[in-house]
C-alpha cells in the first residue's frame, strides 16, 4: 500500500504538468496514440524478459517523435497518423507476446493499471522519469508556453517550434510510461485530462497555477480511488478513473451553479 501511495503521487505530478500541456495544446488524441503504441514495447519486454516499462520507453518516444515529424512534414491527416501508430503499436505488442511461449499473467495490469502491485524498481523508474520531465519543463517553460499559446507567432519571433513540439511530445511519451502502472495504457488519458479539466473550472490565470492545482487534485483523487478500490475490492485503475469522472461532474456543477467560487 505504501508503494501504491508513492506511485500515486509520482504519477500525479506528471499528470498535472504534462496533462496541462495536453489539454491546452489540444493534443489529447496524439497522447492516446502514443500510449497505445507503447504496448509494442510492453510486449517486447515480455519477450526478452526485462521490465516492460523500460522497453516501453523507446516505443513511446519513437512513436511520439514520428507522429510529430509526419504531422509537420507531410500532408497526411494528423488523426489518420494517430490511428496508424495506435494500432501498429498494439499489433506489435500482441505479436511479441505471442512469440513468447505460455500465457502472460499480468498483461492485464499494463492495459488497465495495477497500482497495488507496483514494485520498488517501478518506483525508481517512475522517479527518474519524474525528475527528467520536471527538469525539461522547467528549462523550456517559456518556449512550451509560447508554442502552446500561438505557434505561428512563436515561429516568427524565433522559437524553434518544430524541435520543441517534438520535445513536448517526447515528454508526453515519458509521462505515459510513468502512468502505465497506475491506470494502464488504455486508461491513462483519463489521468492526463480529468484533473486538469477539474482544476480548470476554477483556475484560469496562468499555466503554472493550473499545473500545481491539477497535480494536487490528481494526487487526492487517485489516493481516494485507491482506498475505495481497496475497501470494496474493485479494480484500482478503473475505480480511479470513475472517481476522477465523478469529481469532474461535481466540479462542473459547482462552477455552473455556484459561480462565485471561480
Amino acid at each position: 500500500m505504501r508503494n501504491a501511495i508513492i506511485a500515486a503521487i509520482l504519477a500525479s505530478v506528471v499528470c498535472g504538468i504534462i496533462g496541462t500541456y495536453i489539454v491546452v495544446k489540444k493534443i489529447v488524441f496524439i497522447s492516446g496514440g502514443i500510449s497505445h503504441a507503447s504496448f509494442g514495447g510492453v510486449g517486447l519486454g515480455y519477450l526478452i524478459g526485462i521490465n516492460p516499462l523500460i522497453t516501453a520507453i523507446p516505443f513511446a518516444v519513437l512513436s511520439a517523435v514520428s507522429v510529430g515529424i509526419i504531422n509537420r512534414k507531410t500532408k497526411i491527416n494528423e488523426d489518420a497518423i494517430i490511428g496508424v501508430i495506435w494500432s501498429v503499436g498494439m499489433a506489435l505488442g500482441l505479436i511479441f507476446i505471442s512469440l513468447k511461449q505460455g500465457y502472460a499473467p499480468d498483461l492485464f495490469s499494463y492495459l488497465f493499471g495495477s497500482i497495488l502491485t507496483v514494485t520498488h524498481s517501478d518506483l525508481i523508474l517512475m522517479s527518474i522519469l519524474d525528475v527528467i520531465i520536471i527538469t525539461i519543463v522547467y528549462l523550456f517553460y517559456k518556449e512550451f508556453l509560447s508554442i502552446s499559446f500561438d505557434e505561428e507567432f512563436s515561429t516568427v519571433v524565433g522559437v524553434p517550434t518544430n524541435a520543441l513540439y517534438l520535445l513536448l511530445l517526447s515528454m508526453v511519451a515519458l509521462s505515459i510510461i510513468v502512468l502505465i502502472r497506475v491506470a494502464g495504457i488504455i486508461l491513462v488519458l483519463a489521468l492526463l485530462t480529468m484533473p486538469i479539466l477539474i482544476s480548470r473550472q476554477f483556475i484560469h490565470d496562468n499555466l503554472r497555477n493550473l499545473m500545481v492545482s491539477s497535480s494536487i487534485i490528481s494526487a487526492i483523487l487517485v489516493i481516494i480511488g485507491l482506498l475505495v478500490s481497496y475497501t470494496l475490492d474493485l479494480i484500482p485503475g478503473a475505480t480511479i478513473v470513475l472517481i476522477l469522472s465523478i469529481a469532474f461532474i461535481f466540479a462542473f456543477l459547482i462552477k455552473k451553479y455556484i459561480p462565485n467560487l471561480s
Binding site: 491546452v24 518556449e143 508556453l145 500561438d150 507567432f153 512563436s154 524565433g158 524553434p160 496562468n206
Partner: peptide, 29 residues
C-alpha cells in the same frame, strides 16, 4: 505581426502581460 484575433483560444490560461512577453523571446535558456 498581428494575426487574426478570432483564431485564439480565449480559455487559454495566460494573462495579458505574459501574452505580450512572448514577443520578447530571445533564445533558449
Amino acid at each position: 505581426y498581428l494575426p487574426q484575433y478570432s483564431l485564439f483560444d480565449r480559455d487559454f490560461p495566460i494573462n495579458v502581460f505574459d501574452v505580450v512577453l512572448t514577443a520578447r523571446y530571445n533564445r533558449v535558456f
